[in-house]
Computed example of a mutant assay.
Amino acid sequence: MTDPVLPPVDSADPFGFKRRGVLFVLSSPSGAGKSTIARKLLAAEPELGMSVSYTTRPPRPGEVEGKDYHFVDLETFRAMVANHEFLEWAHVFGHRYGTPKAQVWNVLEQGRDILFDIDWQGAQQLHQLAGGDVVRVFILPPSMPILRERLEGRGTDSQTVIDARMERAANEVSHWDGYDYVLVNDDVEACFANVRTILAAERIKRSRQTGVIGFIRKLLRAGGAAD
Rank of each mutant, 00 (worst) to 15 (best):
M1I: 13
L6K: 05
V9I: 15
S11P: 15
S11Q: 15
A12M: 11
G16A: 07
F17I: 11
K18H: 08
R20H: 14
R20L: 00
L23S: 10
F24K: 03
V25T: 11
L26S: 12
G31M: 09
A32P: 09
G33M: 11
K34E: 07
S35G: 06
T36C: 07
L41M: 09
L41F: 01
A44E: 10
A44G: 11
L48P: 00
V52K: 05
S53N: 14
P58D: 04
P61N: 10
E63N: 12
V64Q: 04
V64M: 09
E65V: 13
G66W: 00
K67H: 02
Y69Q: 15
Y69T: 13
V72H: 02
D73H: 01
L74N: 06
F77A: 13
A79I: 00
A79S: 10
A79L: 06
M80K: 15
A82T: 07
N83H: 05
H84I: 06
E85S: 09
L87R: 01
E88L: 11
E88T: 10
F93Y: 03
F93G: 01
G94K: 05
G98E: 02
G98D: 07
P100F: 01
V104D: 04
V107P: 04
E109N: 14
Q110N: 13
D113H: 03
D113Q: 05
L115P: 06
F116Y: 01
D119K: 12
W120Y: 14
Q121V: 12
Q125H: 01
L126T: 15
G131Q: 01
G131V: 00
G131W: 00
V134G: 13
I139M: 11
P142F: 03
P142T: 07
M144N: 05
M144I: 15
M144P: 10
R148N: 06
E149R: 12
L151V: 11
E152W: 02
G153R: 04
G153N: 01
R154Y: 07
R154N: 08
G155I: 08
T156L: 09
Q159F: 05
Q159P: 13
T160I: 09
V161H: 02
V161I: 08
V161W: 01
D163T: 06
R165S: 04
A170M: 09
N171P: 03
N171V: 13
N171W: 02
V173D: 12
S174L: 09
Y181R: 11
V182L: 10
V184W: 01
N185V: 15
A190G: 03
C191H: 02
A193K: 03
A193D: 05
A200M: 04
A200E: 07
A200K: 00
A201N: 13
R203V: 05
R203Y: 03
R203A: 08
K205Q: 12
R206P: 12
R208M: 00
R208T: 08
Q209S: 12
V212H: 05
I213C: 11
I213G: 12
G214W: 03
F215P: 00
I216E: 03
I216V: 14
L219W: 05
L220Q: 02
R221W: 00
A222Y: 00
G223E: 03
G224Q: 08
A226V: 14
